[in-house]
Structures are given as structure tokens and as C-alpha cells.
Amino acid sequence: MNTIQLPSITPIDHVAVEEKVGRLNKRSIKKESKVLALKMALSMMDLTTLEGKDSEGKVRQLCQKAKQPHPAMPDLPHVAAVCVYPSMVRVAKKALTGSDINVASVATAFPSGMAPLSVRIDDTRFAVDEGADEVDMVISRGAFLQGEYQQVYDEIAAIKEACGKAHLKVILETGELHTYENVRLASDIAMQAGADFIKTSTGKISPAATQPVTLVMLEAIRDYYYATNKMIGMKPAGGIRTAKQALQYLVLVKETLGAAWLTPDYFRFGASSLANDVLMQIVKQQTGSYQSGDYFSLD
């Protein structure tokens, strides 16, 4: 395996990080800027279903929602991707034929990653062979917490190789890393090892995505960009359920990384129930009144 100069620990002041998030949460997003942001949020969504009970029918239903989020408003943007388990990639791929919506697949023994590396590599290759455009891998949190940073790096690099042309999102599972310093270090390792995106969580562990964690990761992306000119994407996932939260995340991105990251190419929301709240807000902005949840399809 190649040896690299592993990133060292970057001090993070958690009080100031949380205070900064509090300050940015006070941004008041109104009128046109709200509509624009809601549509942007919709276009950045990775519609996700990751359950043991997922069936082909359920996945096809989700793909339909991805293409046409709200039939009453056909001009709305479609979402960025549909995120499924490897065994559902083929179904999703077929259902999305003709659209430019990506199929993302979790892999590497998601969500724990507790399988031999060879199995995780095979898992990745399978997903890619089935047609996945994007792979969401998990890092070995156990190894990371033991201080085996080289191992974490090597594994990410190996999965990146197995991805071929597919984009690699590296899930840090920040809820298991506990400190912002760890989040920062794991972000740095993932980016150096070849991640196209870094992602907060699997959604299977609580806490999942939080805004302070996202800010720390965005700042890591910014430093990496300063140093290398490479733009890495960001995906908070898990626990983002309301349009208001989505707007707050977009403010973090706008004021940390700027306009270049405000596209589905560099920012995604991993969410299963966010879409309908965003849709409800868009309709409210256009009609002036909230509609019943019954008018939005549950997929």
C-alpha cells in the first residue's frame, strides 16, 4: 500500500463552532430567495430508502417520485439521485432510464462496515457492475478510533479504485466519532484518499447529521480546496426532515464555501422524508396557504 503523509489533528473549538451555527441560523430567508432555495434543496436531494423491507415495488415508486416530485407542479426540478442498497441498483437504474437522475448505492457492508475488506470491495464492485453511478461507503470507525489512520486511508483508497468511474461518497458516521477534531481528521483522510464527497452519516446511528458537524466538514473541504484547488462535495444525511432545516444547511454552504458549491454536483441532502416538506413549502410560497399532507405522495 502507498504511504502518505497523514493529516494531523486540527484544533477545533466546539463552543465557537456551535456559536457560528447559531449565528447563521438567524439568517432570514424570505420571498424569492426562499423559493429559489427550496427548489435548490429539491434538486440536491438523494431520495433514500435503506430498509431491510425494501422491495422492488417500493424502489420503483421512489424512482417515480424522484423524476416527478409533485405532479401538480410539473416544472419543479427533479432530485439528484436515488439511494438504495446494492441489490436494488438494477431496479432503480431501469426505473430511471431516460432521466439524468443518478443511482447511488450504499456499499462496503453498510451501515457497520464490519466485514473483511475483500468483501467490501466485492460489494462495491457489484454495485458498480449493476449500474450505480455513485457509491456511498462507510469508513472503519473502529480502526479510526484505535488510531489506525493509515488503515482507514488505505481502505478508502481501495474502495475508490473499485469504484472505477462511479463517484465515491465517504460516510464518516460522525455520530460514532464523537469529537469535532475526529470529524475533521476523518474528513481530511477521506479527501486525501480520493473521496469525491464526504458524508456525515448512515442514518442508522443517532445523532446523524448536525449543523455543527456539517460546518466542520465544510471548513475541511474549504481548506482542502485552498491547498489543492480540488472541490470536494458534501452530503449531510439523516435527521434532516424539514424545509427550514434544509435552508439552514444551504446557508452554511453559501457562507462557508460560496456559490460554486450550491449545486447538486457538490452538495446533496441524504433524506427520506424531507422532500414532502420542501414541496409543501414551495406550494405554500406560490399559493399563499398550506395544503394538507394528503396532497403530497408518500413514497
Binding site: 430567508i29 424570505k30 430567495s33 429559489l36 432555495a37 474549504r222 480546496y225 457562507e255 456559490a259 450550491l262
Partner: peptide, 14 residues
Amino acid sequence: SKLDFQSVWEYDSA
């Protein structure tokens, strides 16, 4: 400055 904070999405006055 390498980052662009202006375009794409401006906040409306509140």
C-alpha cells in the same frame, strides 16, 4: 479570494 459569495443565491431583504 478564491471563493465566490455573491452569485447564485442572494438573500432577499427581511
